[in-house]
């Protein structure tokens, strides 16, 4: 084999993608990283110097601490809620008789295809000062004062759970499909109660699905833009909306680039370390 000339075909077949990606992904990403190493002056713009002052500013400033803290707190909370409601829902879906199973699978997954803007708009209509929440509150006799979840952490959490929970459901659903239903029967005949079967047999087998769903939900929440921008607004800034403002309002591109780089690095670190964890923990147990 070693004497044979290297087959060029696979390189030719992947070349269009690779060249396109180097020029239009590699170069812009590199430029963003380099940009983050310049300083910025509000009168003269981007400086030609090299500095890590942007990173120091982002990592040292309590203002950014608050934003990063809020973002990852939000991501954690949304992930936990998605686990708490998405896992049982996937279980219910898997045990529904057809045709209900197909119908509700469509209902639960279908929203993933609908623009995030539209889905968030729905919650904005609920949350707004003249929204349904206010109507319900006044109907229940809580007075005419508007009840609003707009520009609140709670509002963002609810809307993001709605946007992202289908990813948890589908991930757990896929794991559930792989379970041998006889393994649950086997545990039952060995004397386990239904609750024990759920806890000791079913749940451990869908753990990989729960973990991969969690990582998807966490990563997408941490970098979410549309929902925090519409529901959270300027009052509840997260990393993505803060970077957006640096770029398009303050025009401090180098600082915005530094925020983007940090977000990217955190994102990749989380995904990669998750994959390592799964490999170590589950390699012997599951395919």
């Amino acid at each position: 084999m070693s004497a044979k000339a290297l087959d060029k075909t696979p390189f030719l077949m992947t070349a269009p993608g690779v060249i396109f990606f180097i020029m239009l992904l590699g170069v812009p990403m590199l430029m963003t990283f380099l940009l983050s190493l310049h300083s910025y002056d509000f009168t003269t713009g981007i400086q030609p110097d090299w500095t890590i002052s942007n990173y120091i500013e982002v990592l040292g400033d309590p203002y950014f601490h608050k934003i990063f803290g809020r973002t990852f707190g939000l991501a954690l909370l949304v992930t936990v809620i998605c686990v708490l409601i998405g896992v049982p829902e996937a279980y219910v879906l898997a045990h529904l008789p057809n045709p209900w199973r197909s119908v509700f699978l469509l209902v639960v997954l279908g929203p993933l295809l609908i623009s995030v803007v539209v889905r968030t708009l729905g919650w904005a209509l609920f949350f707004g000062g003249k929204g349904v929440l206010t109507m319900i509150a006044s109907g229940l006799g809580f007075g005419e004062e508007p009840v609003s979840l707009m520009f609140t952490f709670t509002g963002m959490t609810i809307a993001l759970v709605h946007v992202l929970v289908p990813f948890m459901v589908i991930s757990v659903w896929a794991s559930l499909q792989k379970i041998d239903p006889q393994s649950e029967d086997a545990a039952l005949t060995l004397g386990a109660s239904k609750l024990t079967v759920l806890y000791r047999i079913t749940l451990p087998q869908v753990m990989p699905g729960i973990l991969s769903g969690s990582i998807i939900v966490f990563a997408l929440t941490a970098s979410a833009f549309a929902t925090p921008a519409i529901i959270g607004g300027r009052r509840m800034k997260v990393v993505a909306t803060a970077a957006y403002d640096e770029y398009l309002s303050t025009l401090n591109w180098p600082l915005g680039a530094a925020i983007a780089v940090i977000l990217l690095v955190v994102n990749i670190v989380i995904i990669v370390s998750y994959n390592k964890l799964v490999e170590r923990r589950f390699a012997k147990v599951f395919e």
Binding site: D180, S183, D185, A186, T189, P204, M207
Partner: peptide, 13 residues
């Protein structure tokens, strides 16, 4: 009762 299933139904974890 003791049962041996066709798929063995072992607990993979």
């Amino acid at each position: 009762l003791g049962i041996v299933f066709q798929s063995y139904a072992l607990f993979p974890h």
